[in-house]
């Protein structure tokens, strides 16, 4: 028996979920990929436990130079440690053409000052006038 009057359209709302599912998965993939990239440049080092400058505005970090406890210099977790000469080349490449080159040094708090000082000399020779030194904000 037909209960709907003849000529009247079915007004039940059909929710189309496919585009929403597509967008949700695209967003998930986007965040997973970007978080991997961000993690790649930050080696696992114990940063000095200091409050830092506590500036409100965030700035582009630029090139990351990680110095671990043993004094190894690592630019990316997917790469092997590099020598001071190789670092000088990479810094020069990064600095070339940049008006205000940005470099962040992530040095282990127990790391050797000798290597840190050499890295600072390399930066100075390449024309970097100000280095960002990463700290871990105490909770």
């Amino acid at each position: 028996m037909r209960l709907t009057p003849v000529g009247k359209r079915d007004r039940r709302l059909l929710l189309e979920l496919t585009p929403m599912v597509d967008i949700v998965f695209l967003l998930i993939i986007f965040f997973m990929v970007t978080s991997e990239f961000a993690r790649d440049a930050r080696a696992d080092v114990e940063l000095p436990r200091l409050a830092g400058e506590q500036l409100e505005q965030s700035e582009e970090a630029g090139l990351f130079i990680n110095i671990d406890e043993a004094g190894n210099i690592v630019l990316s977790t997917s790469e092997d440690p590099i020598s001071m000469d190789e670092l000088a080349k990479r810094v020069r490449l990064h600095v070339a053409g940049e008006e205000t080159p940005r470099v962040t040094v992530r040095a282990d708090r127990q790391g050797p000052m000798k290597v840190f000082n050499e890295v600072i000399r390399v930066l100075d020779e390449a024309g970097v006038s100000s280095a960002r030194i990463a700290t871990e904000v105490p909770r």
């Binding site: 409050a51 600072i120 100075d124 100000s130 960002r132 030194i133 700290t135 871990e136 904000v137």
Partner: peptide, 12 residues
């Protein structure tokens, strides 16, 4: 862990 930075001028 939350990170911040110190931003000194560098000189040799």
């Amino acid at each position: 862990r939350p990170e911040d930075r110190l931003n000194p001028t560098i000189r040799t």
